[in-house]
Write a protein that binds this DNA or RNA. Sequence first.
RNA 1: GCCGGUGUGGCGAAAUGGCAGACGCAACGGACUUAAAAUCCGUUGGGCCUAACAGCCCGUGUCGGUUCGAGUCCGACCACCGGCACCA
Length: 926
Amino acid sequence: MSTVRRQYPFHLIEPKWRGFWDRQRTFRAWNPGDSISPEHPFAQRHRCLPPKFYILDMFPYPSGAGLHVGHPEGYTATDILARYKRAIGYNVLHPMGWDAFGLPAEQYAIKTGQHPRVTTEANIATFKRQIQALGFSYDWEREIDTTDPGYFRWTQWIFLRLYGSWFNPATQRAEPIETLPYPPDIVTDGQRRAYRDARRLAYVAEAPVNWCPELGTVLANEEVIDGKSEVGGFPVVRKPMRQWMLRITVYAERLLRDLDLIDWSPSLKDMQRNWIGRSEGAEVHFPLADPIPSADAGENAITVFTTRPDTLFGATYMVLAPEHRLVDGLIPGAWPAHTPDAWKGANPASTPREAVAAYRAFAAAKSDLERTDLAKEKTGVFTGAFAVNPVNQERIPIWIADYVLASYGTGAIMAVPAHDTRDLEFARQYDLPVRIVVQAPVGKESIGYIDDGVSVNSAFLDGLPTPEAKQRIAAWLEERGAGYRMINYKLRDWLFSRQRYWGEPFPIAWRQGQHESIPESDLPVVPPPLADYKPTGSGEPPLARAAQWVQRPDGSLRETNTMPQWAGSCWYYLRYLDPGNSRAFCDPVAERYWMSGDPPGEPTPGAPSKPTPGVDLYVGGTEHAVLHLLYARFWHKVLFDLNCVSTPEPFFKLVNQGLILGEDGQKMSKSRGNVVNPDEILAQYGADAFRLYEMFMGPLEMVKPWSTQGVEGVYRFLGRVWRLLVDERSEQEFEQAQTLAGADDISLLDRLRLHALVQDAPPAQGQLKALHTAIRKVTEDLEAMRFNTAISALMVFVNEAMEWPQRPAAVLGTFLQLLQPFAPHLAEELYQRLAAAFPAALGAASTLAYLPWPKHDPSFLVESVVELPVQVNGRLRGRIQVPAQAGPDEIQAAALASPSIQPFLAGKAIRKVIVVPGKIVNITLA
RNA sequence: GCCGGUGUGGCGAAAUGGCAGACGCAACGGACUUAAAAUCCGUUGGGCCUAACAGCCCGUGUCGGUUCGAGUCCGACCACCGGCACCA
């Protein structure tokens, strides 16, 4: 396919250096206590472990399709920083692994009968080959795979920690379940077990869940988009089932508050805050107007949650979710007198009980999709019962309607149609009264006004602005026991079980209907081989087919659900710290070093400042902005509470790379046919050009379209770098020899000689200025992750250096150090040649990876004469040359005297002259 | 509807409140070549004016404001992208 002449022999250079790095273990990240060979370049630079820098990529799901050009975008950015941080002097941890449990491998297994392990291993091999071809400086000795029993053993172990813990509200921390205190009325073993099981962080619940018949599994709320499965887009229905849940909701407050500890983008933090959805308000009890004699106190009042207790006087009806547990009990035998037919549902002849049953059936039949789609018209039915508004003893009708969600708050609301859009819509639908209790500001309509105003028609609240009215009414309710202040969260507990094969089995067994943990010594629980991986369709997981496996020798039965794909990715960044450990998920010393930055020894003099807590930099796509990041933070906090890790947050700084679109500006997809295959780009332009282009396209976080012509641009730049150092005639000879001996003969590289202009000459002032300008710009840009402008600074340097009458070896050597993070293969190759030819100028180094990063010398950047633009009335009218140290007066005089400025001043009075030394002069005329 | 982001040449983009368009792509012209590719040199926001040099005007989504000076700060709006969405 390639008709383009190769700019330089990357096809020989790139494998050569990857092989070298591999053999030398150049990018091995050393743990405290590791013995490091004295020949290793790390040992030659550092006498003991310097501060750590942990740079993490979101590990990929190795799909059968292989890598696409979006994956390497983040990986390239992190690799450049990893190489830069190494050069600065950090001990860099930069690992890679595989998030390999998941549906595609399983669905392939269902189709072909092939074990998912086989597919998974093949996919990993493809991914690894493609990722390694890019020359990333990962420590491959730390590679992990979530489907490896040596890995998921610890995923199961962490699950047992969750299972064996409760959240102590007094300390706001997870604690071992053994510390759980029992109330005096909990006495029997059975009671204690039930009490305990109801408080574990991992618990079993019979809950209405999102059942996807097509996938044969339940899905978490987050995995359901518009009533369809996120994977595959299949219909999802609500169905009550027994499921494992994780009690993430108890961490809502800490997950919210600790966002302040970390350096994430405001929009990302907002997404997390939104998801957690904290709202402050009050719970208020509305007693039933006609108490049920047989019921206890709790069943004779309806509790609602409201963020606007100040509008209590405007509550003209109540609504319960159709599934609300009190509905059945409160329905009277007959409709109250004068009940409008419109309130009685579809059939006015029915009794209240029949009307409610009919409405419930109607609501349950709606799929989630319809519930959101049909949001325009609200529906509901009167229950026939009334409640009493505690503030004014008014009887108000109780309705059920599916615009009230069972799963949020108490599943019941007080409706204040004047000041809530949804209630107003519903009230108009059924002709319910609307009472203004908040006066809108002048010029605004009070009906439908939902923001803060001033209370009216509200007795003792009248005249109070909304915030004060809220306080007053809350105090009033609390005094009378009619309600209390309350904080609610949108966040729900995490549905943690799946009816799938290719996931971590739960380390749980069942005995007489009770669950118990499987001993740690029996981990890992490995999924058994099956003849048929198909879902059973009944909701029974495929593992149930393995009858022998399910039956344990002690008579108990294994749990047959498996964990969701998120499980493995919730803690993988911790396993990288100590991936081979078979006694613990991670050695505590390694954990403290890499996560807390606790130094194991003396810091290297002049080494970087205090490490940040947690992963220093985490780069990945926005698609994980909520789920993965929230789940991982949750697990981390539990491990923190149980003293398994030393930081409250896992990821200190997080950056989302922007999506790469196809050349047509559309999202890349097979159906559009605009997918760019990195293998082809690599074959034609090499890894260095690929890396460079991915970074040169634009800022990392922006969405941007791919352009293969853009790759050619940076490829040409690398060609110019090559020709800056390599003699053209020797290159021609090299190419001729290649045609004879074959293109893959690496020994031919020896025929290449350095360019004659490359000399061990003292650099000229201008050359030093060009070099140090580049050092400064590249360094600043790397610190700020502005890779595109750093590359352009390298280009500016090369464009200038091509003009020089001679090319001082020392200057070129330093330039190659700047190039190294971006185009490491080319930089290593050229540096090796340069150092061999000019040992006195460069010094010997087996690799650029640990050479100290150059520092710019400001004295080379000063100018003796500077040019300043001169404006008249804000318009550019000329330029002046002045000495760099010239004071404002001198500059002003020069500006006024300038021949190009004079004509504009003629006959006008000068009002003011603004002089910004080193920047600009602006003369304003009267 | 709510929250967040982004609007700059033909295209990707760059610009601590101080010369808008660095760097790169594409295009055009030239050198080299029998020719092409590659490479090298030059031009390239729009308009006006000039034989030319030079010079002038307009221009960073729209409208307004602050400032000696605004792509950048403030206010209102428009468009596109992403997230959430009956969360009481």
